[in-house]
Design a protein around this nucleic acid. Structure first.
Length: 133
DNA sequence: GCCAACGTTGGC
DNA sequence: GCCAACGTTGGC
Protein backbone atom coordinates (compact mmCIF):
# COMPACT_ATOMS: atom_id res chain seq x y z
CA UNK A 1 0.00 0.00 0.00
CA UNK A 2 1.19 3.49 -0.81
CA UNK A 3 0.34 6.67 1.01
CA UNK A 4 -0.39 10.14 -0.32
CA UNK A 5 -1.54 13.64 0.50
CA UNK A 6 -4.13 15.61 -1.42
CA UNK A 7 -5.15 19.22 -0.99
CA UNK A 8 -8.52 20.84 -1.22
CA UNK A 9 -9.71 24.29 -0.36
CA UNK A 10 -12.39 23.57 2.25
CA UNK A 11 -14.71 26.26 0.93
CA UNK A 12 -14.80 24.24 -2.31
CA UNK A 13 -14.66 20.69 -0.93
CA UNK A 14 -14.01 19.95 2.73
CA UNK A 15 -13.62 16.92 4.98
CA UNK A 16 -17.22 17.40 6.11
CA UNK A 17 -18.33 17.43 2.48
CA UNK A 18 -16.60 14.08 1.99
CA UNK A 19 -18.32 12.68 5.10
CA UNK A 20 -21.66 13.85 3.73
CA UNK A 21 -20.99 12.31 0.33
CA UNK A 22 -19.53 9.05 1.76
CA UNK A 23 -17.54 8.69 -1.45
CA UNK A 24 -16.63 11.29 -4.01
CA UNK A 25 -14.49 11.78 -7.09
CA UNK A 26 -11.39 13.88 -6.50
CA UNK A 27 -11.58 16.31 -9.38
CA UNK A 28 -10.19 19.55 -10.78
CA UNK A 29 -6.57 18.47 -10.68
CA UNK A 30 -4.99 20.26 -13.64
CA UNK A 31 -1.32 19.66 -13.13
CA UNK A 32 0.62 16.87 -14.79
CA UNK A 33 2.79 15.96 -11.84
CA UNK A 34 -0.27 15.72 -9.63
CA UNK A 35 -2.06 13.70 -12.31
CA UNK A 36 0.85 11.29 -12.55
CA UNK A 37 0.66 10.78 -8.81
CA UNK A 38 -3.07 10.08 -9.08
CA UNK A 39 -2.39 7.52 -11.82
CA UNK A 40 -0.03 5.71 -9.47
CA UNK A 41 -2.72 5.29 -6.80
CA UNK A 42 -4.26 1.89 -6.20
CA UNK A 43 -7.52 0.95 -4.51
CA UNK A 44 -6.83 0.77 -0.79
CA UNK A 45 -4.07 3.39 -0.76
CA UNK A 46 -4.47 5.86 2.09
CA UNK A 47 -4.47 9.60 1.60
CA UNK A 48 -4.15 12.54 3.97
CA UNK A 49 -6.78 15.20 3.41
CA UNK A 50 -5.20 18.66 3.66
CA UNK A 51 -7.25 21.84 3.86
CA UNK A 52 -5.37 24.47 1.86
CA UNK A 53 -5.78 28.22 2.17
CA UNK A 54 -8.40 28.04 4.91
CA UNK A 55 -7.20 26.03 7.90
CA UNK A 56 -3.91 24.89 6.35
CA UNK A 57 -3.94 21.60 8.20
CA UNK A 58 -4.23 17.88 7.65
CA UNK A 59 -7.67 16.96 8.92
CA UNK A 60 -7.97 13.24 8.38
CA UNK A 61 -7.36 10.12 6.36
CA UNK A 62 -9.23 8.85 3.34
CA UNK A 63 -8.73 5.88 1.11
CA UNK A 64 -8.84 5.33 -2.61
CA UNK A 65 -11.92 3.34 -3.60
CA UNK A 66 -11.54 3.65 -7.37
CA UNK A 67 -8.25 3.98 -9.23
CA UNK A 68 -7.60 6.68 -11.81
CA UNK A 69 -10.05 7.07 -14.67
CA UNK A 70 -10.35 9.81 -17.30
CA UNK A 71 -11.86 13.11 -16.25
CA UNK A 72 -14.98 13.45 -18.42
CA UNK A 73 -14.45 17.20 -18.35
CA UNK A 74 -10.90 16.93 -19.72
CA UNK A 75 -9.57 13.52 -20.76
CA UNK A 76 -5.97 14.67 -20.42
CA UNK A 77 -6.51 14.48 -16.67
CA UNK A 78 -7.91 11.86 -14.32
CA UNK A 79 -10.12 11.40 -11.28
CA UNK A 80 -9.88 8.96 -8.41
CA UNK A 81 -12.74 8.17 -6.05
CA UNK A 82 -12.09 8.49 -2.34
CA UNK A 83 -13.92 7.70 0.88
CA UNK A 84 -13.24 8.87 4.44
CA UNK A 85 -11.40 6.54 6.83
CA UNK A 86 -11.15 8.62 9.99
CA UNK A 87 -10.78 12.18 11.15
CA UNK A 88 -7.73 13.22 13.15
CA UNK A 89 -8.43 13.91 16.81
CA UNK A 90 -5.97 16.77 16.43
CA UNK A 91 -5.63 18.37 12.99
CA UNK A 92 -1.98 18.86 12.07
CA UNK A 93 -1.25 22.42 10.96
CA UNK A 94 1.22 23.32 8.25
CA UNK A 95 3.34 25.17 10.80
CA UNK A 96 3.73 21.97 12.82
CA UNK A 97 4.76 20.01 9.74
CA UNK A 98 7.27 22.71 8.79
CA UNK A 99 8.88 22.69 12.20
CA UNK A 100 9.12 18.91 12.58
CA UNK A 101 12.66 17.61 11.99
CA UNK A 102 11.46 14.38 10.37
CA UNK A 103 9.19 16.15 7.90
CA UNK A 104 11.57 18.51 6.17
CA UNK A 105 11.38 16.66 2.86
CA UNK A 106 7.62 16.83 2.54
CA UNK A 107 6.61 17.95 -0.93
CA UNK A 108 3.94 19.97 0.84
CA UNK A 109 6.76 22.17 2.11
CA UNK A 110 9.25 21.95 -0.73
CA UNK A 111 6.75 22.21 -3.58
CA UNK A 112 4.00 24.29 -2.13
CA UNK A 113 1.89 24.37 -5.28
CA UNK A 114 1.72 20.63 -5.83
CA UNK A 115 -1.74 19.36 -4.86
CA UNK A 116 -1.24 15.56 -4.97
CA UNK A 117 1.96 14.07 -3.60
CA UNK A 118 3.41 10.84 -2.22
CA UNK A 119 4.12 10.48 1.50
CA UNK A 120 6.76 8.05 2.73
CA UNK A 121 5.95 5.39 5.32
CA UNK A 122 8.11 7.23 7.86
CA UNK A 123 6.41 10.56 7.24
CA UNK A 124 3.03 8.88 7.37
CA UNK A 125 3.73 7.40 10.79
CA UNK A 126 4.99 10.71 12.20
CA UNK A 127 1.98 12.63 10.95
CA UNK A 128 -0.54 10.06 12.16
CA UNK A 129 1.06 10.28 15.61
CA UNK A 130 0.85 14.09 15.54
CA UNK A 131 -2.83 13.86 14.66
CA UNK A 132 -3.58 11.30 17.35
CA UNK A 133 -5.45 9.64 14.61
C1' DG B 1 -5.02 41.57 -0.45
C1' DC B 2 -0.31 40.81 -1.72
C1' DC B 3 3.07 38.47 -3.87
C1' DA B 4 6.56 34.57 -4.64
C1' DA B 5 6.84 30.40 -6.93
C1' DC B 6 6.06 28.11 -10.76
C1' DG B 7 3.42 25.98 -14.61
C1' DT B 8 1.49 27.02 -19.22
C1' DT B 9 0.95 29.42 -23.53
C1' DG B 10 2.23 31.26 -27.72
C1' DG B 11 5.18 34.19 -30.71
C1' DC B 12 9.31 33.91 -32.89
C1' DG C 1 13.16 25.05 -28.83
C1' DC C 2 13.51 29.37 -26.30
C1' DC C 3 11.68 32.50 -23.42
C1' DA C 4 8.60 36.47 -22.20
C1' DA C 5 4.09 37.10 -20.78
C1' DC C 6 0.60 35.54 -18.30
C1' DG C 7 -2.34 32.83 -15.04
C1' DT C 8 -2.81 30.16 -10.84
C1' DT C 9 -1.78 28.41 -6.32
C1' DG C 10 -1.49 29.06 -1.78
C1' DG C 11 1.13 30.95 2.28
C1' DC C 12 1.37 34.99 4.75
Amino acid sequence: MNTWLMKSEPNVFSWDDLIARKTAPWDDVRNYQARNNMRAMAVGDQVFFYHSNIGREIVGIMRVVRAAYPDPGDPRFVLVDVAPVRKFKTPVPLATLKSHPQLQNLALIKQSRLSVMPITAEEWAVIVALGNG
